[in-house]
Design a protein around this nucleic acid. Structure first.
Lengths: 232, 232
DNA sequence: TCGAAAATTAAGTATAGACATAATCTGCGA
DNA sequence: TCGCAGATTATGTCTATACTTAATTTTCGA
């Protein structure tokens, strides 16, 4: 039961309590919105708001006509933010530095073309940009990027502003893929990131699209010791 | 303008179009809910639903009385699911195997106690579990875990079912911290994961709580080649 | 001029009622 | 028995209205 006035948050909390305490066990059907509204003495819309929120969070599964049931395996979702690297560094209280290492048109490797869904042979060459982000003058992250030249034409210069920052600020992207992995530093990476050859490095591959237009495929390789952290 | 009946999704789409096309530029204040409701010929609640959704997605910032403004740096959020490792492996179409390597009470290292907020000296010993998850009989992931013995007492046996699976299925956790990083395989890791010493390994640290009760702190270290993938 | 109190404002939430939509279930006919 | 049409049902959504809450702005007194 809920004391006092019923808000959708209090109703959500009570529903979560019933799920956790197994009053509503995994897989079980829970009462209809109308019944719950009556039980708690509130409008159905309020119940709907609470249950919808729990469904979004993965605790419940809802289907029209089928009713609402407790998720069998509560899939916990972790979210983290894709920010501008400069802000990431400055947020740690460190000084930001940036160095452009390469910027040229070149034929992209097959796996990059595949990730960007450019297998039809269009756009034979992509713009390749390599840049280093520094924190307190020490290498922090190496950005290795393939760009759709139709989106970031040759008039655009990445000498002062990184492609990362320009893209986040100016291109509306609608979706993409993300991959996290560990890689060993080869000779070139070790030189750029000022670490030992063979060092274990954290890396992120990211492909972005705006609608169906391929925008960019980037690999961010971080200097040793980097941790990507988030809360659940 | 929106053709036909106005749903909160169509309104959301139109608002997003205005943000992307810079009709509503970054940082700018957008019209009030009441004004938009009038413009689109719908109820304010419908506008609220659409704008609230865009705010949750990071496109807008809303404050009571302050109104709604377009986010200066659209923070993109990626979400991924925390699943049972067995399901992860089976989802790849591989056969799942499991081997318990260690299970004992032991004093936990300081950093583990700190992560679990056990710095007051209570619970001098925690339950330590080490287990290997195999995919098609090859090492896939090493689970190295500290457990609150009050939650997973000695009566509970992890010979057949991994602590990972038992916890996901039986413990309601409310929150925790997550960290991703790369680490080099030391001699012990190399032996367990059947890889070369010094290999770059992807690892995840996870701390979980139920309310304020510490549940577990785990490190999952994956065999070489593992990629954590998700979509945006 | 300064600062606190009061007024104002825009989002947040609750409600009753209505209709839409997708599943599911029922019953009929072949 | 099978399959499809139609009835049923639970969630999804929209509306109009009212009230709440947080924050800003204005006002007014010291």
């Amino acid at each position: 039961m809920i004391a006092g006035s019923v808000t959708w948050q209090s109703l959500r909390a009570e529903a979560l309590r019933r799920i956790r305490s197994r009053i509503w066990p995994p897989g079980a059907q829970i009462p209809h919105e109308a019944d719950l509204a009556e039980e708690f003495g509130c409008a159905r819309a309020t119940v709907n708001r609470a249950l919808r929120d729990l469904a979004e969070a993965g605790y419940l599964e809802r289907r029209r006509k089928g009713g609402t049931r407790v998720a069998l395996t509560p899939v916990r979702k972790a979210t983290f933010e894709i920010s501008i690297i400069r802000q990431d560094i400055e947020g740690r209280g460190q000084g930001y530095g940036y160095r452009l290492l390469a910027d040229r048109l070149a034929p992209a490797p097959t796996e990059v073309r595949k990730a960007l869904r450019l297998m039809d042979g269009s756009m034979s060459e992509l713009r390749f940009v390599r840049a280093l982000h520094l924190a307190d003058d020490r290498p922090f992250c190496l950005e290795s990027r393939w760009l759709n030249p139709a989106v970031a034409g040759p008039g655009l210069c990445f000498d002062a502003q990184s492609a990362n920052e320009w893209l986040v600020r100016n291109i509306a992207f609608s979706g993409g893929d993300l991959g996290f992995y560990a890689r060993a530093a080869d000779r070139a990476l070790a030189a750029d990131l000022a670490c030992d050859e063979g060092a274990a490095l954290f890396a992120v591959d990211r492909t972005t699209f705006s609608d169906t237009t391929p925008i960019t495929a980037v690999t961010l390789t971080y200097a040793p010791g980097y941790r990507l952290v988030t809360e659940m």
